[in-house]
Structure formats: structure tokens, C-alpha cells
């Protein structure tokens, strides 16, 4: 068990550090809050709490953006580096190698949140007034971990797909749209509204919004993040087991 935790912790640290030095990955998480907070400013106008929530929403969009841009293709990156077979053949379970990569990809989204808040504070003079700091501080890692777990599920389901990152990109705009980030869910067509409940960003954003404004039930939303993260992890582990077995049986791990 200590070895497993060491692999998880070390993997998270190494990949977080590597991603923090990648110009493309940093651009993905930095650009989202700047763009969408600016759009929110021009479209919704005003300042105060509404703009603060828009900044947080654009930060969550950055976390999701990072997940779709790199998370789905996490295995493809290992394949390109020529280490996928070595990692699969290592004595540690493969999920313990992939999970830290997926979480690290989402975790660099913390820059997105920080930049979003800093941006609206410095350029639009929005005061950073959080109603419930403990809930907010708990909601940030819960959101990142839940979105990271969703990235793990994507990466696992797309392990045999050479262009996994392209498939991941397809989900970027739809999830931004349905998860109540900048667009209230009530604006969406009725049939689309329940879909938002399947995605972790919905609950993460709800927790962050509730903690910021003092509305809703942020702790319950954090709990939903945890439940969804567990569901994603189980589904991801099952997918990984099935697809890896198929790839090894047919000797197509490097070729798919």
C-alpha cells in the first residue's frame, strides 16, 4: 500500500511539474479565464458578485479545457514517448500510473482559477469576497479531482484510439455549454438540462458559486463531486482493464 501511494504521489508531482513547464498546456489554462471573463464583462456588464462568479466559471472552463486538450490523449502521449508498453508491463497496476497523469492535467487548472480571480480584481476592480471560505477551499480540490477522474475515464475509454485527444476536444464546447458555467442551465432546452447532472463541472461550479455567494448547498455539491469522481474512477478502471487486455491479447498496444 505505501508503494501504491508513493507511485500516485510521485506521478502527480512529476506530471504537474512537467505540465507547468509546457507552453501549450499553460496557454490552455491561462487563456480561458482571460477570454471568457472578458466576454462576460462585455456581455453581462457590471461588476461585483456576478463578475466574480463569471471569473470562477471561466476558471472551471480552464480546468475542463486542460482535461479535454490533454487528458483524453494522456495515453497517446505515453505512446508517442515510447514508454506505454513499459508502463503497462511494470509491476504496478496501470491505473495507478494513469490516474496521477489525469489528475495533474486537471490540477494545472488551479492556475486558471487564480488567474481568473486576479484578472477581474486588477482589470475590473471586482473585490474577491467569498462568503464561505472553508467551503470554497474544499470545493477547489474537489472540483479538480472530480474533473480529473472524468479525464481518467476518457483516457481509459479511448486507450485504443490513436487520435484520442481529438475525440476529447469534441467535448470541450458541449460541456462548457451544459454545465451551467457561464450559461445558466435554465436557458438550455428542457431535454438537455438533466444531462448536465452527469458531469462533474456542473457540481463543482455549483459548489464554488454557492460558497462564493452564500447560496445553495456547497457541501452537498462537494459530496456530489466525490460521488461522481468515484463513479468515473470505477468505470475508468473497468474500461482500462478491458481495453488493455484486448490490446495485449492482439499485440496492438503500440499500433492502435
Amino acid at each position: 500500500m505505501p508503494r501504491l501511494f508513493r507511485v500516485l504521489g510521485f506521478g502527480l508531482r512529476v506530471h504537474f511539474t512537467m505540465l507547468s513547464r509546457s507552453p501549450f498546456d499553460l496557454w490552455v489554462v491561462v487563456a480561458s479565464p482571460l477570454i471568457f471573463a472578458t466576454l462576460a464583462h462585455f456581455l453581462f456588464g457590471g461588476g461585483g458578485p456576478q463578475m466574480l462568479v463569471a471569473a470562477i466559471a471561466s476558471g472551471v472552463m480552464g480546468i475542463w479545457s486542460s482535461t479535454t486538450a490533454s487528458g483524453a490523449g494522456a495515453l497517446q502521449a505515453q505512446r508517442r514517448l515510447g514508454v506505454l508498453e513499459l508502463l503497462v508491463a511494470s509491476p504496478m497496476p496501470f491505473w495507478s500510473v494513469l490516474l496521477p497523469i489525469s489528475i495533474a492535467i486537471s490540477a494545472i487548472g488551479v492556475y486558471s482559477l487564480a488567474i481568473g480571480l486576479l484578472y477581474v480584481r486588477l482589470f475590473f476592480g471586482v473585490p474577491i469576497e467569498i462568503h464561505d471560505w472553508p467551503a470554497f477551499v474544499a470545493a477547489v480540490p474537489a472540483t479538480i479531482a472530480a474533473i480529473g477522474a472524468l479525464g481518467f475515464l476518457f483516457a481509459s475509454a479511448l486507450v485504443r484510439f490513436r487520435s484520442a485527444s481529438m475525440v476529447g476536444n469534441v467535448f470541450e464546447w458541449p460541456v462548457w455549454m451544459v454545465c451551467g458555467l457561464l450559461i445558466p442551465v435554465s436557458v438550455l432546452p428542457g431535454w438537455l438540462q438533466p444531462v448536465s447532472r452527469l458531469f462533474a463541472p456542473t457540481w463543482g461550479m455549483s459548489a464554488l458559486r454557492g460558497a462564493t455567494l452564500g447560496s445553495g448547498h456547497p457541501w452537498a455539491d462537494i459530496g456530489m463531486c466525490a460521488v461522481l469522481a468515484a463513479a468515473y474512477l470505477i468505470a475508468g478502471a473497468l474500461c482500462l482493464r478491458f481495453f488493455l487486455h484486448a490490446a495485449r491479447a492482439r499485440a496492438t498496444l503500440a499500433l492502435t
Binding site: L43, W173, W176, I183, P184, V187, L188
Partner: peptide
């Protein structure tokens, strides 16, 4: 996305 953002 932008149509719904516009509606909001």
C-alpha cells in the same frame, strides 16, 4: 454555446 450565451 454562443447562441445560448447570447440568450442568457
Amino acid at each position: 454555446f454562443f447562441v445560448y450565451l447570447g440568450r442568457a
